[in-house]
Simulated assay, not measured.
Amino acid sequence: MKPFLLLLVGLCAALSGCLMSREARVESDYSFAGQFRRYRTYEFVTGEGITSDTSKLGEAVRDAIRTRMKVQGYRPARRRPDLLVNFRLFEGSMRFRGYQQPEFSRWVKTGYAEGEDTPADQRQGYSPVRMLLLDGTLLVTLIDNETNRAVWNGYASGVTVPNGPQGEVILRRSVRSIFDQYHVFTEGYLEQN
């Protein structure tokens, strides 16, 4: 009877882990000034905190981001990358300002990007939305290296990261879910493959 009980407890724990990872709220917002069609290379921001974290969890996030960037045609570049990638895992609930915007892939298809010379009457304008993000938010930010401005934020809220290998799996799934919001392949990549 004990082996059956252990199997049942293990199965319940595994299912609850899967359910917890699926409950994460995943959203994104972007800059109308983003030149999404011209970005081809990237590099990670280095510094303090999890971005410099060499633990298995930090490396799992970087590996998952590298995989998605490669799948979408982006190449790593240490010298003068088009995009800088930054990520952070926040603990606890937090208030976050996002934006109500046209669907991202439709915006990118237009090929339009606002610039300094865009007349005021032709600017999109941002409609801020205040959100309460649940305990555990993974935020990925893409920064235009030339302008030094964030052009895209993707975030998964409600990400519970347990210790050990299960935490790595949950972070990788969260990164995949976040990048499912970023439907941009480098120009010509799909025709080549």
Rank of each mutant, 00 (worst) to 15 (best):
53 D>V: 03
92 G>K: 08
117 D>H: 15
73 G>V: 07
103 E>P: 10
60 A>R: 00
67 T>F: 11
53 D>I: 09
57 L>V: 08
68 R>E: 13
40 R>L: 12
64 A>E: 01
101 Q>T: 08
63 D>P: 03
41 T>P: 00
108 V>W: 03
115 G>D: 04
39 Y>M: 04
120 A>T: 12
48 E>V: 06
32 F>V: 04
47 G>Y: 07
61 V>A: 04
63 D>V: 06
111 G>W: 07
126 Y>V: 07
67 T>D: 08
80 R>C: 11
42 Y>H: 09
100 Q>A: 15
62 R>T: 03
24 A>E: 02
76 P>R: 11
25 R>G: 01
66 R>M: 07
68 R>P: 00
88 R>L: 12
100 Q>P: 10
30 Y>F: 08
97 R>F: 07
28 S>I: 04
22 R>I: 06
72 Q>K: 15
111 G>A: 12
87 F>E: 02
126 Y>E: 09
33 A>N: 08
89 L>G: 00
137 T>M: 04
120 A>Q: 10
59 E>N: 15
100 Q>W: 11
76 P>K: 10
45 V>K: 03
18 C>Q: 13
15 L>I: 11
114 E>K: 10
86 N>H: 13
21 S>H: 01
84 L>V: 10
62 R>Q: 09
73 G>Q: 05
112 Y>S: 09
91 E>W: 08
84 L>D: 15
124 Q>R: 06
127 S>V: 15
83 L>W: 03
72 Q>G: 08
79 R>Q: 14
96 F>D: 03
138 L>E: 02
31 S>P: 01
136 G>T: 06
133 L>K: 01
26 V>R: 03
15 L>M: 11
16 S>L: 09
125 G>K: 08
68 R>S: 02
90 F>L: 14
113 A>G: 01
79 R>H: 14
17 G>C: 12
41 T>A: 02
41 T>M: 00
128 P>T: 10
39 Y>Q: 02
60 A>Y: 00
93 S>Y: 01
77 A>M: 08
67 T>E: 06
115 G>N: 05
133 L>C: 01
75 R>N: 13
89 L>T: 00
42 Y>C: 05
83 L>H: 02
74 Y>K: 01
15 L>R: 09
21 S>M: 05
135 D>L: 05
35 Q>Y: 08
84 L>T: 11
86 N>D: 11
133 L>E: 01
57 L>Q: 13
123 R>S: 06
131 M>L: 14
